[in-house]
Structure formats: C-alpha cells, structure tokens
C-alpha cells in the first residue's frame, strides 16, 4: 500500500536547551529557536515512511512569523518534499484551535491521508492541536505514538499510555501525534540542505484560508517559577546536625 501524501505540521519554538527567561512580564524571545523536538520526530517518521515507499510525498507546514521559514528549511533538509508557510505577524499568538483550523484548511487543499504532528509543543505545552484537528476533520486519531506500522487501508499504532503501551488500528485518513520514543531524528546533511534550498515553499495568510486567528483566550500574567534557594555545603556531621536543629528546625 502506498499513501499519496503525508502532511506534517511543525512549529518553531525556543530551543530545547535554552533556559527560558521572563523579563518585564514577557518571555525573552531573542534567543535561539529550533523545530519543536516532537515535530522533528514527526518529520523523521514521515520521511522514513516515504523511504520505505509507504508514501509518495511528504509536505511540511508551519504557522508562524517569517523566521519560521528556517524551521521549514530544516524539515525540507530532513527529507520533506515541499513546504507550506502560513505566515502570521511576528509576536502574534495563535492558539491550538486556530492552528488546527489552519491545518484543516491546508488538509482540505492537499488531501493527505495521514497528518503526523508532535504530541505537543515544548513552549506552550498545550497538547491540543492534534486532537482538535481530528475533531474538526472528523478523522480517526492515534495520539502519543511510539510505533507506526502500515498495512492495507489502515495503520497500526502503538501508543504510550499510563502504565504501558496500547496498540490501536486506525482507518485512513488519520491523525497521529508523536511521542518521544517513536524514532531518533536524523541530522540534516549538507547535500540535503542544499537540495532543500531548491524545494518549493508556498505561502498563505490566515485570511487566504478564511481562518480568524483572533485569540479567544487572554494571557493575564507570565512569570518565572519561584527560584530555588541555594544549597549549602557543610564541613562536618556536627555542623549538619546543628543546621538541621537550629536553621531548618527539623530535628
């Protein structure tokens, strides 16, 4: 069996290794950004399915500001065939429901049989887009996948659930969200980075797709978690006992 098309929505987020800082009630975004790690896994899985001839084409898409094109280039360098950029103004917040509506609009145009996306983005941790998309499209879904097998007319997906693994079979078309252990994404090699430069990126605005992205949720406050007060080294057992008694007052 071979699918015609897999759509992989990806998101540009603050790099996994960067410590997020809040300054003046806002998140400091003047730091390194990369592709959401779960989306990297989604791209990798789609590209592997294509390499195994389970799929003919992999399309990467993103909703984000101009700089999100970098993220699409990474997806293309990893092996996606072409990309779609739904451009929104820098600093514009787009909530999961709006993102899901934008993905639905692209899915309506491109008619993929499978949409694979990260189970959540590591910036807002919403974990809603995939599920909402399944609802909007009225497709089957298998969230938190750690293994995907392709069979005639259906996919068998092993899911990570509390306390173990659950294997489900989903009819096509379907939505899959990726969990951590699904695969290990590849590096972008130079020949592929060069090829990626020549691949096509189509651009849309939310307006082109008839989606209103006015947020329905208002952010009231952003603050950093309370700072942990530093530990202390003690020189001897006596000192430790003394501190436990007199400073921490736990003895």
């Amino acid at each position: 069996m071979s699918l015609n098309r897999i759509l992989v929505p990806v998101k540009r987020v603050i790099d996994y290794a960067v410590k997020v800082r809040v300054t003046g009630g806002k998140i400091d975004t003047n730091v390194k950004h990369s592709m959401n790690p779960f989306d990297e896994i989604a791209i990798e899985e789609a590209v592997r399915m294509k390499e195994k001839k389970f799929a003919k084409e992999v399309i990467a898409m993103t909703v984000g500001p101009t700089k999100s094109q970098e993220t699409l280039r990474t997806a293309l360098a990893m092996g996606a065939d072409r990309a779609i950029h739904v451009e929104v103004p820098e600093g514009q917040e787009v909530l999961p429901l709006q993102v899901a509506k934008l993905i639905r609009a692209i899915a309506d145009k491109e008619k993929p049989e499978v949409v694979i996306l990260g189970k959540q983005a590591i910036d807002d941790d919403s974990s809603q887009t995939g599920q909402m998309l399944a609802g909007l499209l009225n497709w089957s879904q298998a969230a938190f996948a750690n293994k995907i097998e392709v069979e005639a007319g259906k996919l068998t997906v092993t899911r990570e659930v509390d306390g173990g693994l659950e294997t489900v079979s989903t009819k096509l078309p379907t939505i899959i969200t990726t969990d951590l252990r699904l695969n290990e994404p590849r590096y972008a090699t130079l020949p592929n980075i060069m090829k990626a430069k020549k691949k096509k990126v189509d651009k849309f605005t939310p307006k082109d797709l008839n989606v209103d992205i006015t947020p329905s949720i208002e952010t009231i406050k952003i603050e950093e978690p309370a700072k942990r007060s530093g530990g202390k080294k003690v020189e001897s057992v006596d000192e430790l006992i003394d501190k436990l008694k007199n400073e921490a007052k736990v003895l």
Binding site: P37, A77, A188, L190
Partner: peptide
C-alpha cells in the same frame, strides 16, 4: 562556506546541526 566546499568537492559529505541538541551531539 558550506555551499562552496560541497560544490567544489572539498568535502565528501557533512551535516549542519539544526538545534542545540544536535550541536551538543
């Protein structure tokens, strides 16, 4: 630079880290 070294055949192959995790890797 990478474009040049690749097209001129100075390097056989290569990879560019896409995020900090790959830099560390």
């Amino acid at each position: 630079f990478l474009d040049h070294v690749m097209t001129e055949g100075l390097v056989e192959d290569g990879a560019l880290a896409q995020d900090t995790t790959q830099v560390a890797g």
